Simulated scan of single mutants.
Amino acid sequence: MALIVVAEDDAGTMRLIEAALHLQGHEVLTANNGQSAWMTIRQYRPDLVVSDINMPGVNGFDLLKAVREHAALQQTPFILLTSLQERRNMRQGMTLGADDYLTKPVHPRELVDAVAAQLNRKAMRTAALELQVKEAVNEALDEQAWTLQEQYELRLAHELSEQWPGEAQGDREDFHPQATVLFADIRNDREWARALDPQQLAMMLKRYYEGGGDTVHLFGATSAHFVGDGLLAVFTDRTSKTSAHQGLRAVKAAFGLRKSAAAMQGWVQQQFPDLALPRFEAGIAIHSGPVAMMRLDGLLGGAAQVLPVGETVVNALAMQRAAVGPHPVTLSIPVLRAVTGAVQPVSRHFVTLPQCPEPLEVCAVDPLPAT
């Protein structure tokens, strides 16, 4: 497994971290101050560093800065540990190049997930370099393609010719212990409802959400449904026990929806040139967890419907409606860690969800910059 250096001056926290990582098969080297940790890192060149921020002498920020400025060590994944009172300083840590951070007291499961995500990101980077050497770049770029038009050229004619969701899927009543839920709706929906009459509003929603349905289908959604003025899509992967692959497909779909929203702005201006309208923007939230598919019979003259239900679905809707800031795509932290290395985190914050005793931490993300 991996060689990990842990810098922590609290003996109890150190024992907990060391035990959790040993259980995963990792080799752990410990240091109770930043100076000792820096000497260990330079000598052993670990696969990952976990460091507390508040240490005497060389603190966690100093250690991170030293690692990032060292030519041979600058790509080493680095996770910071912080108390709730120090969270305001995390912008400094992310600016210096921290890959993730955990709030103390540290929970072993969250630590293990964060470490696994960073090691997976490192492995993905190494594999990508090997693929380039073997001249298999085209296949890797195809898997990572974010441009919706490129995907259309390769798959649209085939995919949209098939019935979807299909009779076999439509008749299923199923439970997914791990699914990824995407919810997208139009921002400033009340302003749009006041500015347009019902017929104009229906025309606008029809244009955007018909394209949105094609987009989530294109990236492999298991099902899609309209909830009010929003689009709810569920991504599952029966062939894998992890959420990484379905999470990547959901995030690709989110960026496709964001691109469609940008195109809609031009259409709106052409269609309603004389109206003072808000800017057309879509907000998108992605969350993961268990989802049940509920089959309802006898609705609308006997037509059956299959709907996703459960706390994961409710929280995805609430995440989007509580979203703040200008960035349109928001991920819960489990989804973020599942797609580490494939998106660019912008800001992390908490949202309060209905009937949840604790707020949920989320992260606004952007696509990776083009290279």
Rank of each mutant, 00 (worst) to 15 (best):
L21D: 04
H26S: 04
I17E: 13
I53W: 07
L73Q: 08
Q24N: 05
V58K: 06
A37L: 07
A72N: 08
Q43T: 09
I41H: 00
S51N: 12
L48E: 07
T82V: 13
T82I: 14
V49C: 03
G25H: 09
V58S: 00
A20Y: 15
N59G: 07
S83G: 14
S36N: 03
T82A: 15
I17N: 01
D62M: 12
G25L: 15
N54F: 15
E86A: 11
M39Y: 10
H22P: 11
L64G: 06
M55H: 04
L73R: 05
T76I: 09
I53M: 07
P56F: 10
P77M: 04
F61I: 02
T82C: 09
N32T: 08
W38L: 11
E86Q: 15
L23V: 04
Q85R: 14
A66S: 13
S36F: 01
N32C: 15
G57A: 12
L81Y: 07
N59I: 09
Q75G: 01
F61N: 06
Q75V: 07
G60I: 08
A19D: 10
I79A: 05
A19K: 09
G60V: 04
A19H: 11
G25K: 02
I53S: 06
I17D: 01
E27D: 12
P77K: 08
D52R: 05
L84I: 14
R68L: 12
F78Q: 05
A66F: 05
A37F: 00
L63P: 02
R45D: 00
L63Q: 14
N32A: 11
L84K: 10
E18P: 02
I53L: 10
E69L: 15
G60H: 03
H26A: 09
I17G: 04
T82Y: 00
L84M: 14
V28N: 06
Q43P: 06
K65A: 10
L29H: 12
A31N: 11
F78N: 06
E86N: 05
A19C: 12
S36L: 02
V67M: 00
Y44Q: 02
A31V: 03
Q35W: 07
H26K: 07
Q74V: 01
Q35E: 10
S51W: 04
N54H: 12
N54V: 14
Q43N: 07
L64D: 06
V50D: 01
E69D: 06
N32K: 14
E18V: 00
Q24I: 04
E18Q: 13
Q85M: 15
L81T: 03
R45N: 07
A66H: 05
I79K: 02
D52N: 07
R68A: 11
T82H: 02
